[in-house]
């Protein structure tokens, strides 16, 4: 959007906080929620009609369930998630010192399973992993996003930014072409949002299930007819991290509802 670009350029000129040309200034950032119709918003707002809340409830049960050969539940180490998990998802992907790279919430859950529960990893996009990550992320609903602030994460944020700017696929389009330059417009009649990651995992009516941010990103990649990156690949994690840092200050909404 040329208006935002002009504003961004002006902000750069004023030597205000460093903002790269073309990026959406903080006060113009909006969740996908603000692009939706009243019905979808109402469905997200009311916990009794939000289909994502079923997954949150399932996640709550899994949180308390002993599993793996260690016979431990998440709750045995972390206690009451309402306090111990509050704000955690707003910081993810987070830099893991042992691995020396950022990891997603899904990867953190599977690391806990491997290291502390001695349980097999849960498959990506499987119901249990979605339920657990929805439950954990739900504890951050309303918390402002701060992921990417960790100085050690910076090179990975930058890698994600480059991937966001890179044209790819047979249609030769970059994420930025739609989500920085053309939000508020329509692609085949459907609104294009800023591509903010605030509500994940979220319930998409079109999917008829909850889905992860990685699933969404892979859909956009297939949309431009590019080879989608593998679930959990360093590239997807970096993109996720960039999106979260790009959403800095926006509130978490998990589980959101989208058309």
């Amino acid at each position: 959007m040329s208006v935002w670009r002009a504003i961004a350029a002006a902000a750069l000129f004023a030597a205000a906080p460093a903002l790269l040309a073309g990026e959406i200034p903080p006060d113009a950032r909006r969740s996908g929620y603000s692009f939706m119709g009243p019905d979808t918003r109402a469905m997200q707002d009311d916990d009794t009609s939000n289909p994502g809340m079923l997954f949150v409830l399932e996640g709550e049960a899994l949180w308390a369930k002993k599993t793996g050969s260690a016979e431990k539940a998440c709750a045995d180490c972390h206690g009451d998630a309402r306090s111990s998990m509050k704000g955690v998802a707003a910081r993810y992907p987070a830099f893991d010192k042992a691995l020396g790279r950022p990891i997603t919430l899904d990867q953190r859950i599977n690391l806990c399973r491997a290291n502390h529960q001695q349980a097999a990893p849960l498959p990506y996009e499987g119901r249990d992993l979605l339920a657990l990550s929805a439950f954990v992320a739900h504890q951050s609903r309303g918390v402002a996003i701060t992921a990417g602030d960790d100085p050690q994460a910076k090179p990975f944020v930058e890698q994600g930014r480059e991937l966001f700017m890179q044209r790819e696929g047979q249609l030769n389009l970059a994420c930025t072409n739609c989500h920085d330059d053309n939000f508020d417009k329509r692609l085949a009649g459907a609104p294009i949002t800023q591509g903010q990651p605030t509500g994940y995992p979220l319930y998409r009516l079109e999917w008829q299930t909850l889905g992860s941010l990685e699933r969404r990103l892979r859909s956009c990649m297939s949309g431009v007819r590019a080879q989608a990156y593998d679930y959990g690949s360093p590239e997807l994690v970096a993109l996720e991290l960039y999106l979260m840092s790009r959403a800095r200050g926006l509130s978490m909404e998990t589980p959101a509802v989208r058309p």
Partner: peptide, 27 residues
């Protein structure tokens, strides 16, 4: 999943491979 409706389904249904397990070798 049902096939995407017209006007929706951006990116869905274009890739033949949505399953992580299947995709791995490929990537």
């Amino acid at each position: 999943l049902p096939p995407p409706l017209a006007g929706k389904g951006w990116g869905e249904g274009v890739s033949t491979r949505e399953t992580p397990q299947e995709e791995r070798a490929l990537t």
